[in-house]
């Protein structure tokens, strides 16, 4: 592009402009060369930023972290009550949890901080699964202790099943006009069809639908003819706020089980800065 202009006889002004351009080009190339030297420093800085990204990004993120820590601590207490861990087992487990919890629940924090409401993030289920995995990873925990904990989890699931099926039966009672005897029959039919997904659905605010085909054997001829009432006298609405059933634990407190706390060498969650906008004070 420049070549054709240079072939013509340059004036004094053109020559000086050309010289200035050359000087600028040389200066820029020098800057670039210095930049290449500084790259390791930039990389180091990037690593620091990545570590900082593990910190709470906003108030919702911070709340989610506190809930997760609260739930993990509850699980630790329950494990101690059920499995009676010795000091060695307790230390291994608590250290493992303290080291891994942030990465394990990164997607939970992200989902909750980006969502407008709790729907879709099942803290309880995620913590339960993670704790189960951690227990398997600690080699010193015996199979008896494992099975005792599994029994505890089954018992929880049984309670959930009773609740969700109970809600479904109550729904069916209204929709199909069931008698108390029929309610028991329908309950048994639904137990046979139980799906874990129903609990997740229920936790997110929706009672699973009781299909006519599932329970038709328990209905009378007149009830079968009438079918389901799609417009039951039932109102559902969302209201802002309410009591939360999730425990919370400060990010500054270490996990504890049977008086054993996590190792001091494991860094705790960095606290959010108090002066940062949209962040809660520690």
């Amino acid at each position: 592009m420049i070549a054709p202009t240079l072939t013509a006889k340059p004036s004094l002004a053109q020559t000086s402009a050309c010289l200035i351009a050359w000087c600028l080009a040389i200066a820029c190339s020098t800057q670039l060369a210095r930049g290449q030297v500084a790259i390791p420093a930039v990389k180091l800085q990037a690593r620091v930023v990545v570590a900082g990204a593990n910190a709470p990004v906003n108030e919702r993120d911070h709340t989610a972290r506190k809930w997760v820590r609260g739930l993990i601590q509850q699980e630790l207490n329950a494990i101690q009550t059920v499995c009676k861990l010795n000091d060695k087992q307790a230390k291994e487990l608590v250290d493992l949890m303290e080291a891994e919890w942030r990465n394990k629940f990164a997607s939970v924090f992200r989902s909750y901080s980006e969502a407008n409401q709790r729907g879709g993030v099942d803290f309880e289920f995620r913590v339960e699964s993670a704790v189960k995995t951690w227990l398997r990873e600690v080699d010193s925990i015996t199979p008896d202790q494992q099975s005792a904990w599994n029994y505890e989890l089954d018992s929880r699931n049984e309670l959930r099943r009773r609740i969700v099926i109970g809600k479904m039966v109550s729904d069916a009672e209204r929709k199909f006009g069931l008698s108390s005897k029929q309610m028991k029959e329908v309950e048994a039919l639904l137990h046979e069809r139980w799906k874990e997904a129903w609990w997740v659905m229920y936790r997110n605010g929706t009672t699973p639908e009781t299909k006519f085909a599932w329970i038709s054997t328990a209905l009378s001829d007149a009830q079968r003819t009438a079918g389901a009432d799609p417009s039951g006298i039932r109102q559902e609405y969302y209201t802002s706020g309410g009591s939360v059933d999730l425990p919370s634990k400060s990010l500054a407190d270490r996990f504890t089980i049977a008086g054993v706390t996590s190792d001091d060498s494991i860094p705790l969650q960095p606290q959010p800065k108090a002066d940062a906008p949209g962040q809660r004070e520690p």
Partner: peptide
């Protein structure tokens, strides 16, 4: 207390 929306069902 949470600011999240809570589902209320009136039957």
């Amino acid at each position: 207390q949470s600011d999240d929306l809570q589902l209320v069902i009136r039957e």
